Amino acid sequence: MLKSERKQVILSEISRHRVVSLEQLTQVLQTSESTVRRDLDELEGEGKLRRIHGGAESLHSLQEEESNQEKSIKNVHEKQKIAQKAASLIREQEVVFIDAGTTNELLIRELTAKQVTVVTNSIHHATQLVEQQISTVIIGGMVKRSTDASIGGMALNQIGQLNFDKAFLGMNGISEECYSTPDMEEGAIKRAILENAKKTYVLADSSKIGYSSFAKVAPIKRASLITTKNASPLLQLLKEKTEVIEV
């Protein structure tokens, strides 16, 4: 198959699935992984896709957001390591906030401290916490279907009345200057949580580094970042501005 034909097939697969792995593409194209990597690098250089660990994804607009189902299949190994580290930071008797999102779902599964109170804005997370017999407080409000997060005035009201020892937030974008998310209402929720927590950690796999979304949440220095080790020059810059925990 000619290079131009391979590239067209790759773009077609990404258009259909939004996220594709190297393994998927090598099977579809019947070629080597190194050849696929070169094609992906060239297509990224042409501005037609975005490379991620182990594959590629379609380009996003500032307001575009994947559903939890789509996020759950991306960078699972990285997210697992991040979740394990985050869980190790939670101590008995603490009150912690756990944000909606797929990495935070893994965090709940890794919890070893059981004498804690967990506040969450995710119905799905709350169910899992109750099943683990962990004291749980759920934030009400309008439920955003794609992320399973409670948003809106009711949610902001409730968060404003609470204090947290630690908060664990998900973010869609982490640039040199700030954390960001596609949705303004969800961004407001994350800011409120950050303002009411003694210590906040942002859980983000490497695909979020260098990416910006529509709604700015907070300056980088306002939260510690838990992410996976990588050689990104931006990660080195972030270390100069805030605590970065690499796993």
Rank of each mutant, 00 (worst) to 15 (best):
L2K: 13
K3Q: 11
E5M: 07
V9W: 01
V9K: 12
I10E: 11
E13Q: 13
H17I: 06
L22G: 04
L25Y: 10
T26Q: 06
V28W: 03
L29N: 08
Q30W: 14
T31F: 08
T31K: 13
S32L: 02
E33Q: 14
E33L: 09
R38K: 14
D41N: 10
E42P: 07
G45R: 11
G45I: 05
E46P: 14
R50S: 12
R51N: 11
G55Y: 00
E57P: 06
E57N: 08
E57T: 12
S67F: 00
S67E: 06
Q69I: 12
E70N: 02
E70Q: 09
K71G: 05
S72Y: 02
I73A: 08
V76P: 04
V76A: 03
V76F: 00
V76D: 05
H77F: 13
E78F: 01
I82F: 06
A86Q: 10
L89M: 07
I90N: 05
I90M: 02
E92M: 07
Q93V: 15
T102E: 03
T103V: 06
L106I: 06
L106W: 06
L106N: 08
E110V: 02
K114M: 08
Q115G: 13
Q115H: 13
V116L: 15
T120C: 09
S122Q: 04
L129E: 05
E131Y: 12
Q132C: 03
I134A: 00
T136K: 08
V137E: 07
G141I: 12
S146D: 04
T147Q: 14
I151L: 02
I151G: 00
A155M: 00
L156P: 01
Q158W: 01
I159G: 13
G160Q: 15
N163Q: 14
N163D: 15
F168Q: 00
N172W: 05
N172I: 09
G173P: 06
E176F: 11
E177H: 15
C178T: 10
S180C: 03
S180L: 03
P182Q: 00
G187S: 14
A188C: 10
A192I: 15
E195R: 11
E195D: 15
N196K: 09
A197R: 00
K198N: 04
Y201F: 10
Y201R: 01
L203S: 02
S206G: 09
I209T: 02
G210E: 05
G210T: 00
G210M: 04
Y211E: 12
S213K: 10
L225I: 11
N230P: 10
A231Y: 14
L234V: 04
L237C: 11
L237Q: 15
L238P: 13
K241T: 02
E243P: 04
V244W: 13
V247L: 03
